[in-house]
Amino acid sequence: MTVPAAAAAGYSLLVLAAVVAPAVVLESAGDRGGVRGAVGADLIGVSAAVGVPAAVLAWRGVRRTTRAGRSRTDVWIAASCGLVTVAVAASALPTVVLHATTGLPVLDADAGWPVPALWAVCLGAAVVAGEASRRGVLRWLAG
């Protein structure tokens, strides 16, 4: 594996970790409190389902722009900005949205799917924000 390919793979793993981390934080808090598997286990699955495509997207984005002859400096500056955005948004968005929607009937946990679906939408939005900021910075650097 070449150095650029390894770097892209490492970057995609960081994106995956950023997306999965919030659910791991919730689950580990539940573990400490004595409710193993009851707080964040399903959300880790949902996060992985969003995070794996996000990681592939990040890997392809970095590889494509590198192969297209863009400055490596530009590529990695933009990738760093994208990673920061996705990391912050993946934690902040679910927190803010869950706090803002407490008690809404539409988030009926007994129905099973609404909460994981909301979690996935928040993470999806975080991934889109991260990718948008990466592309935006890259475009600005090229301008």
Binding site: A21, P22, V25, L26, S28, A29, R32, V39, G40, L43, S80, C81, L83, V84, A87, V88, S91, A92, P94, T95, L98, H99, T102, L107, D108, A109, V115, W119
Partner: peptide, 24 residues
């Protein structure tokens, strides 16, 4: 941004997520 995000996530946001019980 990396420093701020790392500090904010590690010292504020993740502890807040773990401490509060926001998931229905």
């Amino acid at each position: 941004g990396s420093v701020a995000a790392g500090t904010g996530l590690g010292s504020q946001l993740w502890p807040l997520m773990g401490r509060e019980d926001l998931v229905p």
